[in-house]
Amino acid sequence: MQLADISPECLEIIRAVRWDRIIEKHEGPDSWAAVLRWHDPEFLMVEGHPVLLPVDQARHRNITILRTIWSEDGHSLTLFLQDKTYDDHWSASGFMAVCDRLPGQDFYLAILYHEWFILEPLSAQVETL
């Protein structure tokens, strides 16, 4: 699935959606209209499902999905991912995304995208105590 395949009516619905962010210490609501205007997003396939995240498609090759949590009804998806695009000690390389399926569509749209400073798994942390 590509954004180019989406109908103009569906794109207008996406543009109207707001999402929450904490990225590079900037936080608050943002609009998908701004993402579509200033960035080059594209669908990322997650376990066979198209997901639209507020990141440029050029970053997809640097993204590793670490964990997926599907809602029982299949309408929501929580992702923990690592993005090594800016792999330095000043940038967070982990992100958490909450995505909902757009009503009447077969894809998921991010409604929350937050930085996450990746910590060792709990089991590894407990082993060191």
Rank of each mutant, 00 (worst) to 15 (best):
W38S: 03
W38I: 01
W38Y: 12
W38T: 05
W38V: 01
W38Q: 01
H39Y: 15
H39I: 13
H39Q: 15
D40E: 05
D40V: 00
P41F: 08
P41Q: 06
P41G: 02
P41Y: 09
E42A: 14
E42Q: 10
E42G: 13
E42L: 08
E42N: 09
F43K: 00
F43P: 03
F43W: 08
F43H: 00
L44N: 03
M45C: 12
V46R: 01
V46S: 09
E47Q: 13
E47T: 06
E47M: 04
E47L: 03
E47V: 03
G48D: 01
G48E: 05
G48A: 04
G48M: 04
G48L: 02
G48Y: 11
G48C: 02
G48Q: 07
H49I: 06
P50I: 04
P50S: 14
P50E: 09
V51M: 13
V51S: 12
V51N: 07
V51H: 06
V51E: 13
V51T: 13
L52M: 10
L52F: 00
L52E: 06
L52S: 00
L53F: 13
L53C: 04
P54C: 00
V55A: 14
V55P: 12
V55N: 06
D56Q: 04
D56A: 05
D56E: 12
D56W: 03
Q57P: 01
Q57Y: 10
A58F: 09
A58K: 10
A58P: 02
A58W: 05
A58R: 11
R59L: 12
R59D: 15
R59S: 13
H60C: 01
H60F: 03
H60N: 01
H60A: 03
R61W: 01
R61H: 08
R61L: 12
R61I: 11
N62C: 03
I63G: 12
I63C: 05
T64D: 14
T64C: 10
I65C: 08
I65A: 08
I65F: 10
L66A: 06
L66I: 11
L66N: 08
R67K: 13
R67G: 01
R67I: 02
T68N: 07
T68S: 11
I69N: 15
I69S: 15
I69H: 15
I69K: 13
W70C: 02
W70Y: 07
W70S: 02
W70M: 07
S71Q: 04
S71G: 01
S71F: 09
E72K: 08
E72P: 02
D73N: 11
D73Y: 00
D73E: 09
G74K: 10
G74I: 03
G74E: 05
H75R: 09
H75Q: 14
S76L: 03
S76E: 13
S76G: 05
S76F: 02
L77W: 04
L77M: 12
L77D: 06
L77T: 05
L77F: 05
L77I: 08
T78P: 01
T78G: 05
T78V: 14
T78H: 12
T78C: 11
L79E: 04
L79T: 11
L79W: 00
F80L: 15
F80R: 13
F80T: 15
L81H: 11
L81P: 09
L81D: 08
L81G: 07
L81E: 09
